[in-house]
Simulated assay, not measured.
Amino acid sequence: MSGRTRVTRLAADQRVGLIVLILVLVAAIGTAKPMFFSTQFIIAPMLTSIAIFTVVGLAQMMVLSVGQMNLAVGGMAAAGAMVAGIAYQALGVPLIVGLVIGLAASGLIGAVCGLLVAKAGVNSFVVTLAMSFALLGLVPSTYAWVSPGAAITVDTPGLAELGRATTADLCIGDVCGPEGIPLILFIALAAMAVIWFLFARMRVGRETLLTGSSEKAALLSSIPVARRIVTVHTLSGVLAGLAGFMLGASTGSFTPGIGQEFMLQSFLGPILGGTLLAGGYVSVIGTFLGIALTVVIRQGLLLFGVGIEGLNILLGSILLIALSFDRVRDAVGKRSALGAARRPEPVIEEEAR
């Protein structure tokens, strides 16, 4: 590959554009508001938000891989966190055990949605919207039943450290890690590594992407399409539950409000990162960068005194632009493919001997 071709490909890579935009915004905001570089008050909380929202974005990306969506991602996050909190409070289980129980609960909810979509043939929009409303009533009712204060606060060993400690708290002798890097960020990086390996190196990941590209072609290739759809919805539920657990650990309590702001972020990250709404292509790194961009914008606007209403307007506008760009890109791709299919093959005549 020539150097010119390599440069052209880099310039066309959406992730490169996101990196450049993030760096420009960080430099601009930091120059105007030097407080932006405060490790304790800005950087660490911002990286915590990036970690949580990245996992939320991965949850949505899983179902987008087959051209579907999960509108119950916030409710699944709240339910998974709630079950984990109840396990800690009522059963006194260790940190990892409670986490596994919570992820199993949210994964089960996702599996139910996947079964309804794959077996009953109901649209994912309808199924997950209905599930979202069901969880919107079930989760607060359960909190009110198990806890008088409608919140579960636990002192499980390791939970507070996992949610609020940074690498500066990890020391070997007199040498400690850098400030401003929360430990919770490594959970998000681990989730990214697992999902990347799933799609890049495992057969189930390749079959999932083929299902998203063309369900008919997947069926003709003997791919168990229904099973793949159930799998992605289950994993979406697991990742949503993980994000809910991370938010609860970072705040120190599990509440019904967990997951309320997850919906917009779950779409912003993958779409800005290059994941196709129609399915067939995902980007784990792009999802992380898309989330990082929105969090940087969010933090910058807060430093400049922009209220939550203005922030939501801007983020919603960004999502609309990204969705429009995705549809245009899909239409252009289909038109190019159709033009190539209609173009007649050149006829090469043999020379008369």
Rank of each mutant, 00 (worst) to 15 (best):
G305D: 08
L293V: 02
V306S: 08
M263T: 11
T275R: 03
F304G: 13
M246W: 06
A249R: 00
Q299G: 10
Q265T: 05
V296T: 04
I297Y: 04
L319T: 07
G273P: 13
L277H: 07
V296I: 08
G252T: 02
A322T: 05
P270H: 11
R327P: 06
I285G: 08
L303M: 14
S253V: 13
L289D: 01
L319D: 02
L323D: 07
S283L: 05
S253I: 04
I297S: 06
V295E: 11
L303N: 07
S283T: 12
L276T: 06
S317G: 14
F288S: 02
A331F: 07
G300R: 03
T287K: 05
I291Q: 00
S266N: 12
G248K: 04
I321R: 11
G244D: 06
R327M: 15
V238C: 10
V306W: 06
G300Q: 04
F325K: 12
P270R: 15
G274Y: 09
I271D: 02
P270F: 15
L315E: 05
F267G: 04
S253T: 15
L303H: 11
L289G: 03
S250P: 08
L264H: 07
G269N: 02
G257Q: 02
I313A: 15
L276G: 01
G316E: 09
D326P: 11
V284H: 05
V332N: 09
G310S: 11
G248C: 10
T255L: 13
L320F: 11
L311C: 02
G274S: 08
G290S: 06
M263C: 05
